[in-house]
Simulated assay, not measured.
Amino acid sequence: MKNLLRYHFKVFLKSNKLLVPFLIYLFYLFTAYGIIPYSIVSSFSESAWVVFFIMTYVGFSYTEVENPVTEQLVLLKVKNDNLYYLSRIVVLLIVGIIMSVIGMLYPVISNIYNSSQLFTRELLLSDIMFGLALHCMMGFLGAMTGALFHPRIIKNRKIAILMVFFAAVLAVAKGALIEEVPFIGFITWIFPPVYDILVTFTNNEYFSLQTIAIPFLWGLLYGTALMFVQIYVLKKNKF
């Protein structure tokens, strides 16, 4: 596993596809926390769905990095399809965790720099812990959403781009869509539950285990389901 992770990171870093997402997220953090004071729960929730969008892009772009011939050669050498595909997912998880840590470190440092005046109340350790968990879960959900549109699953890349964009947007905006067209709710449940998760924190002043436990588990289960679907289809759809 260690050698596979090293290999995947080397391939991904050489593609330079990670630079733009990180710069975009840093720019977002810089502009978002430029207005003070800010509600902790709402700001962390907003930052988390931005991580979802960015990791959806990262997951999607990651599927196009490796050359199919090289992938076949590595699979032949490893002789374990599950291990190979899991190692790719672990790389995405690590990227998502790094992005999430940045998303939490920036406001914490900025709050210290602004003499604890960045937020409307005192920043607690529980806020940081629950906020990081929310970011990591959203990162995982986004990565698995983007990775599902693999070239061997959706061969037409133009359609794949439209589909992943559509899925990411509806994941966040389906609440507003259901309000306008209620019956559409029978369809939108299949999209990532980003809205369903974040709406539970609306008007909340504090994070708590009671409020975050079920949304966190729901996002984790949905992302895990996407992961297994991807691995199953990739193993079935050979080169």
Rank of each mutant, 00 (worst) to 15 (best):
N3V: 05
R6S: 10
R6E: 05
H8I: 09
F9Q: 07
F9R: 02
K10C: 04
F12A: 04
F12S: 08
S15I: 01
N16K: 15
N16D: 05
N16W: 13
V20K: 07
P21M: 04
F22N: 03
I24W: 03
F27Y: 08
T31K: 15
S39M: 11
I40K: 12
S45Y: 00
E46M: 12
S47F: 09
V50G: 00
V58C: 02
G59C: 01
F60M: 02
T63V: 02
V65H: 11
V65M: 09
V65S: 05
E66M: 05
Q72Y: 13
L75F: 11
K79L: 09
D81P: 09
N82D: 10
S87Q: 07
R88K: 15
I94H: 13
I102P: 00
L105C: 09
Y106M: 05
Y106F: 15
Y106I: 09
P107A: 06
I112N: 10
N114I: 01
S115P: 04
S116V: 06
S126N: 13
I128E: 06
F130V: 07
L134S: 00
L141D: 07
G146I: 01
G146Q: 03
H150D: 13
R152K: 14
N156E: 08
I159K: 12
L162M: 14
M163Q: 10
A167E: 11
A168V: 06
L170A: 03
L170N: 14
A173M: 12
V181T: 13
P182I: 05
F186N: 11
I187R: 08
P193W: 07
Y195M: 01
I197M: 15
T200K: 15
F201K: 00
F201V: 01
T211N: 14
I212E: 10
I214L: 14
P215T: 10
W218A: 12
L220P: 11
L221R: 11
Y222W: 15
Q230S: 07
I231M: 05
K236C: 03
N237I: 08
K238I: 04
F239E: 05
F239H: 07
